[in-house]
Computed example of a mutant assay.
Amino acid sequence: MTITCFDIGGSAIKGAVAADPAALTNLGRVDTPLDDFAAFIAAIAGMLAVGAADAASAVAISITGVVDPDTGIIKCANIPCIDGRTLGADLSASLRRKVLIANDADCFALAEAVAGAGRGHRIVFGAILGTGVGGGIVIDGRILEGTAGIAGEWGHGPAAATSAGDPPIAIPRFACGCGQVGCVDTIGGARGMERLHLHLHGETLRSTTIVANWLAGDAAAKRTIECLVDLLASPLALTVNIVGAGIVPVGGGLARVPELIARLDTEVRRRILRRTDRPLVVPGTLTVEPGLIGAAILGLSA
């Protein structure tokens, strides 16, 4: 069986044909039409034509946003033309194919659980530390779909501590884009790191610069990273305790800083109930197209 899989974000649509998640035939990428649904469908249809997959084959999509499994309605602020639509049904009717859709963090977690760092573990929590904070849960090779499509979202809810570091320093409860205050998303990820650095030192720097300065031994950056890890470790440890994850692969831009993930792993293992000397929080191993791999697994296992 061959399927066509897509990884769709606010900037680009990437496609591939897959008979096996380990062997993707890349179809390239096109810009994501943000405000024109007809153009959005046409972009996907055009890549399908390039792939020349069997007319009866399914389409599997990893996408930014959350799909309610009961209604099929997607909530996606990044792509306004699909927000509020029954996207799977609409695409299926237009493309005349079965269409499967999952959140991109869920697809990352699925890819790592089946083909990456999570192989051999029953329960995998995929943590995203990119621009913001997200996650997905995979149990026995299946994505856990929560009510309204929400599960694994450890980045949201007023869970961030109000002090961090040694010696402790007060941390404000920053407002979050989800409408709450004090979310982990506000102090984790790249934007959270930048917000923390500004709060601690009155200096506006990009996250890449803060990380580079930290690795070079800069004292201010060291303090920022210390507070960041302290603020992230407790909610992530709580998530591990609740979910029972055997491994936590990390994706997103900060996963490309192994020294940072190693620090976070040490702190999380110090705070969970289960005692282990083995790494728990680890960089994801599928650094090339995990979204497409996750979508391929989703489609091929349906």
Rank of each mutant, 00 (worst) to 15 (best):
G299H: 03
S11T: 10
V229P: 10
A117Y: 05
I293Y: 08
C178D: 03
G9W: 02
G188T: 06
L198C: 10
G165D: 12
P258A: 11
L228E: 09
S234V: 13
L300Q: 01
G126H: 04
V211P: 10
E194F: 08
P283F: 00
A296P: 04
M47D: 00
K14S: 02
E259R: 09
A19W: 01
K75I: 01
A18L: 02
V138I: 11
D31K: 15
M193S: 01
I44D: 07
I41D: 14
R97N: 11
A159Q: 13
I63T: 15
A159P: 07
L200Y: 10
I187H: 12
R270Y: 03
A52L: 01
S11W: 02
I293G: 07
A216S: 13
V281L: 06
L144N: 05
D83C: 06
L110I: 01
D140V: 02
E145F: 14
C176R: 10
R122F: 07
I128D: 07
D83M: 06
R85D: 02
A216E: 07
S57A: 12
G126N: 04
D7E: 07
R256D: 08
A233Q: 02
G152A: 09
V67S: 04
R274L: 15
S92Y: 07
V248Q: 08
R96L: 06
A18Y: 02
I261A: 09
A77Q: 08
G253M: 12
L91F: 09
F40C: 06
P168F: 04
E153C: 06
G149H: 03
L24F: 09
P158H: 08
R122E: 11
R142P: 13
L34Q: 13
F40I: 00
G132D: 08
V181W: 15
V138E: 15
L196T: 01
R223C: 05
R29H: 04
